[in-house]
Design a protein around this nucleic acid. Structure first.
Lengths: 341, 341
DNA sequence: TTGTAGGCGTTATCAA
DNA sequence: TTGATAACGCCTACAA
């Protein structure tokens, strides 16, 4: 299919390519009503489709947004299998499409940065999920495009961050267990890394215990990775060696589901034998049996919001590029927590 | 950050931009050993990053692959929340990144085609999942780039298709239920549309019954949408009005999980009261309780394969552009089917 | 209000 | 083996 260019349109409409470019870029007022119509008609008849490569080259705007997702530990694949990220991507994509941007989805190879991609593609902006090494962010800043960090506690005024109050969430979850009569509460969690959401949720857990005057027992903390598999492992351990534990606070729903499976292997039932609360409210949470009690964040609308923030920054609608947005969370009571008298 | 161009590299190395372009494109033999070294060194020192927009403009190759995913029925969001698609995307992305391609992820607006995106971005190829209206494909052909169709029975020699034997899968699933002693087997399915995978699975279901000399009862077929929600609905109906049904064959794991939830609402347990088999083996299937018996296709490796096929076609390594690949499937026995004597 | 022309960073065609 | 130089399709001063 031969490419129709601005020249063709200009020719057909009997105007210059500059005029075509003007209407293409919505520079109203630069052209008269009549030429506008002529051009629009010519575009429609020729079925003109602009070439974004050329546009990007000439204008330094690509209408391309980079979206970076964490990878599995073996660095082989995206963590999209964690519905948390796919939900987020759904939200982002819908918003970007609405605003006429396209989305380049990728992971980042270990020891490789994101500078390459952003320069190669002339990205207009990027949404980064998860946390990376220090150097990653420094490099990112050099590119000088708006960036939204999702779930990162990086303290750097350069970035816009979009998160939730993870510490409060961890506290809410633990308190719900406490209020339900549990006092021997385990925490099953991914690696507690500095600057990550897990660290905060862990802090919330400890604070809730403290405020309830409950002794913090390090043996009750199971720290591994944010994955189903680790959850299973922890569940097994709890079932076998920790008969005193009556409730588990998991720092992610996937982990919670793993724990339930691990417990199940040893005949422990949720919530009858052990109660559990998750975190995130991924779409599985309400389809799993028992329906998971969890801390809900509106994942998909977070994606929408991330995209909106980014676009605003790109199009210069926000005064200050930088801001730190904290979205509300809520306790969602379902069936995985039992009240004990 | 000021952009380093080929010119800068050429200047530093004391050669022409043409020479730089040669080494960039691995045209070995076009340059002498010494200039090669000089250029490579200059690139490294300057930290040169090529501009793909310019390259795309000049060469008509973008190293960009379009990936299209079906949308939710309200056309608002991607169906990425269905882990089937996110698993696929994982596979695709990993392979593309390996081969130095980038991935543009998007849905397609109703009554809009994909011609726009592919022309705008000069896509080198595309992977399309799911089925669309007739016109969609005709339009796609005009763009004249390699295209891999995943899960589509479109009969058109133009496209490479990558699928599984859905009919056989439907049959295997039903037979497993039959062999487990069930004779009154419901089918819960999404819309049975022509050219789609569901139609084939449905055919497999019927054939298995026929071969077992079991009367096909249309009342046992629950046709809705491929979604958790519809599964719940069907599960409720079965629990309430169809006491004779002892097993359910679902045409997708998400539907199966919905059915289980619907049954559960009325106190029917799986597999004790009713057996169920799913389809796809999404990652969720083995984490769900009861672990889902299902028809397994290696989803993520399918993604890898789709990407490989596409790249081969793009880089002209395959003689015939077109082919129809059918991947193997297998019955995965887990805990959701009970043998009745 | 309209048109001309140079430039964006690469590739590719020809000569040298 | 190298190096000018003309595309590629679009944007944008600047001039008319």
């Amino acid at each position: 299919m031969k490419r129709i260019t601005m020249k063709d349109v200009a020719l057909k409409a009997g105007v210059s390519t500059a005029a075509v470019s003007y209407v293409l870029n919505g520079k109203e007022g630069k052209v008269s009503e009549t030429t506008l119509l002529k051009i629009q008609q010519a575009m429609a008849e020729l079925n003109y489709i602009p070439d974004y490569s050329a546009r990007s080259l000439a204008s330094n705007r690509s209408n391309l947004i980079g979206v970076v997702i964490p990878q599995t530990e073996d660095q082989a694949q995206l963590l999209l299998e964690n519905p948390f990220y796919s939900d987020l991507v759904c939200g982002i994509e819908s918003q970007l499409r609405l605003k006429n941007y396209h989305l380049i989805l990728s992971g980042v190879d270990k020891d490789k940065g994101y500078l390459d991609v952003s320069m190669q593609r002339n990205l207009d902006g990027a949404i980064i999920m998860g946390i990376y090494q220090e150097g990653f962010y420094e490099e990112l800043k050099k590119v000088d495009i708006p960036i939204v960090l999702v779930d990162s506690y990086i303290e750097d005024a350069y970035f816009t961050t979009l998160g939730i109050d993870d510490e409060h969430g961890g506290k809410m979850a633990t308190e719900h267990l406490l209020e339900s009569g549990h006092t021997n509460i385990a925490l099953v969690t991914g690696a507690i890394r500095k600057g990550g959401v897990i660290e905060k949720r862990y802090a919330g857990y400890r604070q809730a215990l403290r405020e309830a005057n409950i002794f913090y027992n390090p043996d009750n903390v199971f720290e591994g990775s944010v994955s189903y598999e680790y959850g299973v492992e922890a569940g097994r351990l709890i079932a076998q060696d920790h008969p005193h534990i009556t409730a588990v606070c998991a720092t992610s729903d996937m982990v919670a589901i793993g724990v339930i499976n691990g417990l199940n292997e040893f005949g422990k039932r949720v919530p009858d034998d052990i109660s559990i609360i998750g975190f995130d409210d991924i779409s599985y949470a309400k389809t799993f049996i028992p329906h998971l009690t969890t801390i809900g964040q509106h994942i998909s609308s977070r994606g929408v919001m991330a995209a909106q923030l980014l676009i605003e920054a790109i199009e210069g609608k926000r005064e200050s590029k930088q801001s730190n947005i904290v979205l509300p969370i809520e306790l969602i009571k379902r069936d995985s927590v039992k009240v004990i008298p």
